[in-house]
Amino acid sequence: MAKETKVVSRKNMTKRAWTWHLMKQNKIGYLMVAPYMILFFLFTFTPVVLSLVIGFTDFNMLQFPNFVGMSNYVTMFLDDELFITALKWTLFFALVTGPASYLLSFIVAWFINDLDPRIRAIVTVVFYAPSLGGNAYLIWETLFSGDSYGWVNGWLIKLGVLSTPIQFFQNKSYILPLVIIVALWQSLGISFLAFIAGLQGIDRSQYEAAAIDGVKNRWQEAWYVTLPNMKSQLMFGAVMAITGAFGFGGIVTALCGNPPVDYVGYTLAHHITEYGTVRWEVGYSSALTFVMFLIMIGANLLVTKIISKVGQSA
C-alpha cells in the first residue's frame, strides 16, 4: 500500500517535500528508534562532545568551569611526564597485544574450522572461556603468587633454580611478559567467534574451484580463497581488537595494583581514571579522554582501510 502512494506522488514533489512526506509516513519508525537513539545520544554521543568541550576548561565538579584554552593540552604534552609514560604503554599494548590477539583469534579459528562440528563446539568453549569469565585472570595471581606457596615459585625453588621467591607482579622485568600472557589468554573474544562464523560461511564450492585452478595447499587456499571471502568479518574483528587493545588497563590494575611498580604498564586508561575519578580534575581528564578518542578512531580507520585492501592484488 505504502509503495503505491510513493510511486504516484513522488513526481510532483520537491526533494524536501518528498523527504518530509517519507518522514510523516514513517512516524512509527522514529518512535521505535527513539528509545535507543535518545539513550545513545545521552551516553555515547554526549560524552565524546563533552570531553572535547570540558577539555578546554578547568572543571572540577564543584566550581563553575573556567575556559582555559589549550592549557590542558599544553600541560599534557609538555609538563606531564606521566602522560608520556601512559601514552607509551598504551601504544605498546596496542601494537603488541592488539595484533597478537587478532592473529591468535584468526589462526585458532582457522585451525578448528575443519574439525567435526561437535568437537569444534567443545574446542570453541575451551578457547573462549577465559574471556567469558570476567575475573578469571585472578587465578594467575595464585599461579604466580609472590611467596613460595605460589605454584611457579614453589617449583622453581624446589628444583633449585631459585633460592628466594620472586615477587612476579611487583618486579618490573616480569610485569610486562606476564601481563601480555594473561591478556592474550583472555583475548580470544568476540572477534574469535566472528572468525569462526565467517569461515563457516564460505561456500565450499569456492575451495573446490580453487583446487581445480591449481591452489596447492591450505596456505595458498587461505590467502586466495579464505581471506578475501571473509573480509567483512576481518574488518569487524579488527575493530573489536583495536578497541580492546587501546582500552587495556584492567588486567594491570587487578594483577599489579594501580599504579604498578615504576609505572610499568600504566596506560592512558589508568591516567584518565586517576584524574577523572580520583583527583577530580575533570577538565584535564576530559582532554585526556578526547586524545584517547582521537587515537582510537584514527587507528581504527587506518586499519580498516588496510584490511579493505586484503586480497585485492590476489
Binding site: 517519507l22 518522514m23 514513517n26 545513545f40 570531553s51 575493530v239
Partner: peptide, 30 residues
C-alpha cells in the same frame, strides 16, 4: 525506508571504534 536511518546506523557503527570505558568520567558527569 526513512530519512536519517543511515546516519544513525553509521554513528552506532563508528561508536564501536572507541572504548566506552575511557568515557567513564564523562558518563559520570552526565
Amino acid at each position: 525506508e526513512m530519512p536519517g536511518k543511515k546516519v544513525m546506523f553509521q554513528m552506532v557503527q563508528k561508536s564501536l571504534m572507541f572504548n566506552a570505558g575511557v568515557m567513564g568520567t564523562m558518563t559520570f558527569v552526565i
